[in-house]
Design a protein around this nucleic acid. Sequence first.
DNA 1: TATGAATGAGTATTCATTCAT
DNA 2: GATGAATGAATACTCATTCAT
Lengths: 180, 180, 180, 180
Amino acid sequence: MRADAARNRARVLEVAYEAFATDGLAVPIDEIARRAGVGAGTVYRHFPTKTDLYRAVVENRIQSLVAEGRALTEGVPAGEALFVFLRSLVLQWGATDRGLKGALGGEGVDVESLIPETEEAFLQLLGDMLKAAQKAGTARRDLDVSDVKAILAGCFAIQEAKPQDAERLTEVVLDGLRTG
Amino acid sequence: MRADAARNRARVLEVAYEAFATDGLAVPIDEIARRAGVGAGTVYRHFPTKTDLYRAVVENRIQSLVAEGRALTEGVPAGEALFVFLRSLVLQWGATDRGLKGALGGEGVDVESLIPETEEAFLQLLGDMLKAAQKAGTARRDLDVSDVKAILAGCFAIQEAKPQDAERLTEVVLDGLRTG
Amino acid sequence: MRADAARNRARVLEVAYEAFATDGLAVPIDEIARRAGVGAGTVYRHFPTKTDLYRAVVENRIQSLVAEGRALTEGVPAGEALFVFLRSLVLQWGATDRGLKGALGGEGVDVESLIPETEEAFLQLLGDMLKAAQKAGTARRDLDVSDVKAILAGCFAIQEAKPQDAERLTEVVLDGLRTG
Amino acid sequence: MRADAARNRARVLEVAYEAFATDGLAVPIDEIARRAGVGAGTVYRHFPTKTDLYRAVVENRIQSLVAEGRALTEGVPAGEALFVFLRSLVLQWGATDRGLKGALGGEGVDVESLIPETEEAFLQLLGDMLKAAQKAGTARRDLDVSDVKAILAGCFAIQEAKPQDAERLTEVVLDGLRTG
DNA sequence: TATGAATGAGTATTCATTCAT
DNA sequence: GATGAATGAATACTCATTCAT
């Protein structure tokens, strides 16, 4: 890929991320192109449909999250990594990222079919953390990874419903995951 | 109101309820009219804007919920009514009702300004149940009614994310509401 | 015709006159029905199309004008009646009656084919006045009645364009009709 | 601007001019698009609202008129330019141009707020001509430029009411503007 | 390759007119 | 006869996607 093409692609991705984060899927492609300083055709050259663009943005995002999460597992006690990770997802990302909330929290978009591999990596990480926490005795043993993911979706919804108390309420829910 | 008009109004409301429940606010009015077997003008006669129709659907729905909830408070121990009610909301209604989930759980629509009085009645009921549960010692004392509503939104999201385990997961979250 | 039917007809005509006068042809029939306190069907019973209603209103109006004009010819010197009549049309009626201005002043509606007989009576009156004025030596001899009618349309347009000076400007134009 | 875009823009403007001239503001945008042989979206790309299109048409038109008028002031005696200009407006343009008549003559559209600068230039020209004529002693001294504009509206109405004698009748009215 | 112009199907809403009650 | 409910064609405007330049 030519250098300018790569630059354009990156720029579009960045702008699309911000646009989706702010306004959700409703942003017109033309608007994204405008903000990126390219023609609409250029967006379509790199991402043949709007869904493809959305997919790329979300994939990008989730890959970052997975990387961050992996890093976490090294600096944090095994029993706490899951909780620290979930908390940070909800409070740091959920607060500013409508697009991500949509992706992880349902809202009509099916991430599993959209980005199966990245989703897989994400679930892998979550699963590892869950297993570690269960092994450490901090997480309930009757939950599996898809349960945790669903509860994460719930936390995003809570964060959206009452942002000002998201921290406290997230803790209430996460408490439900801990061993009695 | 004339009998045929009332019949049409009811039919439109019913169809709109199903349509919104299935596809959310995206359904075109023309489609609702078609499914109801009436002209678009008829929908507009009864509900001058799409928002009015949505309002009517949601209001209708929430009023039913409030009535059911009120009934609950009589046949169920004071300390349990809140939990029974929330569980029934999520499992019975949430399972089929995207429109309702949207209304109670966010999704960009502001119920408070859409149907302030009904919302008020709903919160009143929830508040009464919460107070009763707190008095009976079954619910945490550090939560207020808007916390509970936000957590309800979270439960809806969970239900949407993993319907097959909604019952169990809802219980996990509701456990978080209970006293230690 | 039954008494109540006649009453309804008259009421609709009156309301329609006011509505057209204020808002022009844009007023919906439903609105006229509402203001008249009858159903839309009633309006249509008496006036099968909107054009028929408009026709009736204008006809009514012009008949009044003709009657007034006829009365004028008795109390005013023969040489002045034409000028007094035109002035009164423009200043009294034009100022408050968009529907009439539309009818007499063009604006896409063809009065001649709409109400040929009444138009005929109006032209008859105007013609009589013109002839009288020409005979009295106050009006130019090189004008015929359709010229005067066209100039009246012009005066209505002037009145609409600059209402605050309509009186003075109408006089400027009417001066053009007088013998040098 | 790209050549094809410019061509389309010009074609739309031309077609819109004809359409508005013939049928007034009532022509649907879709119809204009169809007649221009482009999609509706193309019209909207160049003129984001119907008002914008109308504005462009009228502005275009009036700018031509002003240019023509300015040219006139050079080849015609100062005392006559005003009369020559008004006569040419009414007879040449008014005869085929309902849209223009609407713009200059009222019809519910407010040119002053639509194209304030062009309107200003038009009034400037008219004012210059009026002053020159008054100085030359050919025009009445008790008229200002807005009077002349209103009278022009009147002439358009006359032209519409009786096209076949527009020339003679316009002269009758213009005579009213002349001294003594 | 990049551009941005063109496309055209889709959507909420209005209103003259018809027709069941 | 009266009512007002139902109809459905019409209309301005949007936006994902394609394609000429």
